[in-house]
Amino acid sequence: MDVFMKGLSKAKEGVVAAAEKTKQGVAEAAGKTKEGVLYVGSKTKEGVVHGVATVAEKTKEQVTNVGGAVVTGVTAVAQKTVEGAGSIAAATGFVKKDQLGKNEEGAPQEGILEDMPVDPDNEAYEMPSEEGYQDYEPEA
């Protein structure tokens, strides 16, 4: 019985440690998101679009440190934060509304985080759909 109880105690310690790591990862992701939003706020009209992409990228980098179902929630929060940063930029006159959601080359930025393969159960990952990809044929 002692062996059984000791095993359960060790398992509990492992769960607590994993929860603490997840909590730490979420806190880091939130900190990076805040950094990115402050970065966007300090940019001029020309830099705002690039700044919004930076927020998304920093958040995406930190999301990889967070495991399990938390990833889905962090990704949703990050996307809403990026959308909010863009709205703030438009409201303050840093950028025109028609410039939001495009990178410096004018290509749409939507789907940055949505296409990231995420499995809350950590069982399997699927690649994003290939609808947006084109076949590449090298020139002879």
Results as ranks from 00 to 15, higher is better:
1 M>D: 00
1 M>A: 00
1 M>K: 00
1 M>G: 00
1 M>S: 00
2 D>C: 09
3 V>C: 02
3 V>K: 02
3 V>W: 03
3 V>Y: 03
4 F>I: 11
4 F>Y: 02
6 K>P: 00
6 K>G: 01
7 G>Q: 15
8 L>G: 00
8 L>M: 04
9 S>C: 13
9 S>T: 03
10 K>G: 01
10 K>S: 04
11 A>C: 15
11 A>S: 06
12 K>M: 15
14 G>S: 12
14 G>T: 15
14 G>C: 10
14 G>Q: 14
15 V>E: 00
15 V>A: 02
15 V>W: 05
15 V>Y: 02
15 V>T: 01
15 V>C: 04
16 V>C: 13
16 V>S: 12
16 V>Y: 15
17 A>E: 09
17 A>H: 12
17 A>L: 10
17 A>Y: 14
17 A>N: 11
18 A>E: 00
19 A>S: 02
19 A>C: 03
19 A>V: 12
20 E>M: 10
20 E>T: 13
20 E>D: 07
20 E>Y: 10
20 E>C: 10
21 K>W: 06
21 K>R: 10
22 T>K: 00
22 T>M: 12
22 T>S: 14
22 T>R: 01
22 T>I: 13
23 K>T: 04
23 K>Y: 13
23 K>S: 04
24 Q>R: 06
24 Q>T: 10
24 Q>N: 11
24 Q>H: 11
25 G>Q: 13
25 G>A: 15
25 G>L: 13
26 V>A: 03
26 V>S: 01
26 V>M: 14
27 A>K: 14
27 A>L: 12
28 E>Y: 13
28 E>V: 11
28 E>M: 11
29 A>F: 14
29 A>E: 00
29 A>L: 09
30 A>V: 07
30 A>G: 02
30 A>C: 07
30 A>P: 01
32 K>F: 13
32 K>H: 15
32 K>R: 08
32 K>S: 11
33 T>A: 09
33 T>Q: 00
33 T>N: 00
34 K>H: 06
34 K>S: 02
36 G>T: 15
37 V>R: 00
38 L>H: 04
39 Y>F: 11
39 Y>D: 02
39 Y>P: 00
39 Y>E: 03
40 V>A: 04
41 G>T: 12
41 G>A: 12
41 G>P: 01
42 S>P: 01
42 S>T: 09
43 K>M: 14
45 K>M: 10
47 G>R: 15
47 G>C: 07
48 V>P: 00
49 V>I: 13
49 V>F: 12
49 V>C: 11
50 H>G: 09
50 H>E: 04
51 G>A: 12
51 G>P: 02
52 V>L: 09
52 V>N: 00
53 A>P: 01
53 A>Q: 14
53 A>Y: 14
54 T>H: 13
54 T>A: 04
55 V>G: 02
56 A>L: 15
56 A>N: 02
57 E>M: 07
57 E>S: 09
59 T>R: 02
59 T>P: 00
59 T>F: 10
59 T>Q: 01
59 T>V: 13
59 T>L: 07
59 T>W: 08
60 K>A: 04
60 K>Q: 03
60 K>G: 03
60 K>M: 12
61 E>G: 10
61 E>V: 05
61 E>D: 14
61 E>L: 10
61 E>R: 03
62 Q>P: 03
62 Q>H: 10
62 Q>S: 04
62 Q>R: 12
64 T>W: 09
64 T>N: 06
64 T>I: 12
64 T>E: 10
65 N>C: 14
66 V>S: 01
66 V>C: 05
66 V>M: 10
67 G>A: 09
67 G>E: 03
67 G>W: 15
68 G>R: 06
68 G>I: 14
69 A>M: 15
69 A>T: 11
70 V>Y: 02
71 V>Y: 09
71 V>Q: 05
71 V>K: 09
71 V>D: 01
72 T>Q: 10
73 G>H: 06
74 V>P: 01
74 V>C: 07
75 T>S: 11
75 T>W: 15
75 T>R: 05
75 T>I: 12
75 T>P: 01
75 T>H: 08
76 A>Y: 15
76 A>S: 08
77 V>R: 02
77 V>Y: 07
78 A>G: 07
78 A>Y: 12
78 A>I: 10
79 Q>S: 11
79 Q>G: 05
80 K>P: 02
81 T>S: 09
82 V>Y: 08
83 E>I: 15
83 E>G: 07
83 E>F: 07
83 E>H: 11
84 G>F: 14
85 A>W: 14
85 A>E: 01
86 G>E: 09
87 S>N: 12
87 S>Q: 15
87 S>C: 12
87 S>F: 14
87 S>M: 14
87 S>R: 04
88 I>H: 02
89 A>I: 13
89 A>Q: 05
89 A>Y: 14
91 A>N: 07
92 T>F: 02
92 T>C: 14
92 T>P: 02
92 T>V: 12
92 T>D: 02
93 G>S: 09
94 F>A: 10
94 F>M: 03
95 V>D: 04
96 K>W: 13
97 K>V: 13
101 G>L: 10
102 K>V: 03
102 K>G: 01
102 K>D: 11
102 K>H: 10
103 N>C: 12
103 N>H: 05
103 N>W: 08
104 E>V: 12
104 E>D: 09
104 E>L: 14
105 E>F: 05
105 E>G: 07
105 E>M: 15
106 G>I: 11
106 G>N: 04
107 A>R: 06
107 A>E: 07
107 A>C: 05
108 P>R: 07
108 P>C: 10
108 P>Q: 13
108 P>V: 05
109 Q>N: 01
109 Q>Y: 12
109 Q>C: 07
109 Q>F: 04
109 Q>D: 08
109 Q>K: 13
110 E>C: 06
110 E>V: 12
112 I>L: 06
113 L>Q: 13
113 L>N: 02
113 L>E: 14
114 E>H: 15
114 E>A: 02
114 E>S: 12
115 D>Y: 08
115 D>H: 09
115 D>A: 13
116 M>D: 15
116 M>H: 14
117 P>E: 02
117 P>G: 14
118 V>A: 06
118 V>L: 08
118 V>H: 14
118 V>M: 08
119 D>L: 06
119 D>P: 13
119 D>W: 02
119 D>N: 05
120 P>M: 06
121 D>E: 09
121 D>G: 12
122 N>Q: 10
122 N>R: 11
122 N>D: 12
122 N>A: 05
123 E>A: 04
123 E>M: 15
123 E>Y: 12
123 E>V: 08
123 E>T: 09
125 Y>G: 15
125 Y>K: 12
126 E>L: 03
126 E>V: 12
126 E>P: 11
126 E>A: 12
126 E>Q: 02
126 E>T: 04
126 E>Y: 06
127 M>Y: 12
127 M>I: 11
128 P>I: 06
129 S>M: 08
129 S>Y: 12
129 S>P: 09
130 E>W: 06
130 E>I: 06
131 E>A: 14
132 G>F: 07
132 G>R: 12
133 Y>R: 01
133 Y>V: 05
133 Y>D: 13
135 D>Q: 07
136 Y>D: 01
136 Y>E: 01
137 E>G: 04
138 P>L: 04
138 P>E: 05
139 E>Y: 10
139 E>D: 08
139 E>Q: 08
139 E>F: 07
140 A>R: 10
140 A>Y: 09
140 A>D: 11
140 A>T: 08
140 A>W: 11
